[in-house]
Design a protein around this nucleic acid. Sequence first.
DNA 1: CTGAAAGCGCTTACAG
DNA 2: CTGAAAGCGCTTACAG
Lengths: 343, 343
Amino acid sequence: MSITIEDVAKAAGVSRQTVSRVINRKPGVKPAVRERIEEAIAVLGYVPNLAARRMGGARSFLIMAINDRERTIENWSAGRGNDWVDQMLYGGMLACEERGYHMLFELVDTEEDKAVEQVRRVLTSLQPDGIILTQPHSENEQLMQLLKDRGRPFARIDQPADGEDALSVHFDDAKASHAAVEHLAGLGHQRILLLAGDSHYRASRTRRDGYSAAMKARGLMPEIEEARYSFDQASTVATQWLSKSDRPTAVIAENDEMAFAVLHVADELGVKVPDDLSIISFEDTPGVRFSVPPLTSIRQPTAAMIGRACELLMDAAEGKEVGGEHILPFELKERETTGPAPQ
Amino acid sequence: MSITIEDVAKAAGVSRQTVSRVINRKPGVKPAVRERIEEAIAVLGYVPNLAARRMGGARSFLIMAINDRERTIENWSAGRGNDWVDQMLYGGMLACEERGYHMLFELVDTEEDKAVEQVRRVLTSLQPDGIILTQPHSENEQLMQLLKDRGRPFARIDQPADGEDALSVHFDDAKASHAAVEHLAGLGHQRILLLAGDSHYRASRTRRDGYSAAMKARGLMPEIEEARYSFDQASTVATQWLSKSDRPTAVIAENDEMAFAVLHVADELGVKVPDDLSIISFEDTPGVRFSVPPLTSIRQPTAAMIGRACELLMDAAEGKEVGGEHILPFELKERETTGPAPQ
DNA sequence: CTGAAAGCGCTTACAG
DNA sequence: CTGAAAGCGCTTACAG
């Protein structure tokens, strides 16, 4: 039905192995022959069948990114969109296309054992050449063990794990916290509160450490409140300390949700942003442009991280030795929630 | 390396064809044997290799949804998110998973010839069992011809094309326009403007027709302005008619961008929403919750449409006869931009 | 109801 | 530098 490698071989008057060599850019084909084959490919419009390539023992040309099922679906079903997924696809699909690969996006259970089983299944059904692990799967030890046992290259979009030499692509959380503190301190703020996420996550712990270090370096006192990334918890916390007269003049929220909560509470209590209170958030989801006022925030390089991870995994699939830690730059997007400290 | 069908056959003491029958739920296997095989599968943790299945002549278990490259990337790179993509994945991935399929998401060029060539390539490289065509590809005749020639089932997420009997899944644009008009007329509005998209698109034409019919049925005069889905064009138009004293008291915008533009212009001109002006938009992207005030809008059943399309295509892949037009219900989400007509 | 044979479209060693 | 052979893990007819 379709044009196969055999048709190309016949047209070019060579064997199919030689055509295979040309397709795979392998050395050892006389230029004249290579040219003849390339022309036949063009004329016939030949496109290799990936299933057959895989069966022949080659790669699958599939890079699989896995995301947390529960959280992803929750965002989708609430109609809140999901910028993390969008940016993953953006960075991942384009990087893969570039080299003839395809990005496969899969939802995997939060529960560790189920996650391992699900990944095991897709590993053998689809045989992806590389796997991208995002939170919380990037901290699932069993999963990483499975991948190592199978010899499948994987990249963690996360900080390096303790005693783990796995490939890891991330941005510098500590430095981002530092930048947020510096931005606020530079505006004259002395009391800067960190509205923290969940200490269960390594990234959150790193941000706290970075924040504390930056504060101390400035001779300021760190103040941390935990609100677990939740709008409601952040509202409760914010209501408590915004009601006092003796309160921080600036807050760094570890995600946009919590920053929105602060904005909301401030509005209710008549606290003006940024005149009376400055806010910086981590995340920079599309909604930050619509808040009133628009949020100043740290923009994570999600697309770039996934793109880089894909490139590294494709390199690995092609036999290159890859590994180590890859740190990508973040941006501090200054919008309208930060201003000089009140007198 | 991995467990294959051969291992299962050996363990169950049968040939691999018999195992294949069980895997594919085909009739003609003695219950006792079937049970024995199923147990062997469970014990060994056997998972079929999809590439091999495909090579053997079976399905690929891949459903491919294609989206417009340019528009998709533009949204992603602007960090605006892309709710359409999110909802496609939401509806598509879950429907596919349900039956052991995978959803493949691809970006295809806007330009018709390029689109055909790109689809041709992925058709033979990945051999998807079904293809979902969204705008503008759902109106690309050449593309549909290619798919028909190849005998690949496809579903258009669009209204049925003239003289085209292809499978089409969509929501009722005319009825949605009608609902918007009824909602506003019910609030006492007499002058209701339609801020239209682009008459190039069939859906837009249908909405206009539905709007006009609904207005006439009420004895009201249709008023249409075209702003091609653009914020800027909608701003220009809105500025013109909001400056007059003799103006519509309500507007229906064909997408959220244009509705935001109207909101923005109204704010600048001191026109109160919804006291002086009511607004309804089509689309319901996540941003509508953040606008001030939150937009009343028609919510398209994107996830449901893609999910349904996947189901139909999987049915087709399994030999079922599918076709015709599938119309899914929309919702009118009443938020805070609609109110009684001013006296 | 079950199995032996052939084949899908490639690639990987292995010869020459 | 090029080709003949074998095989990847399945499925599809075809026998029995």
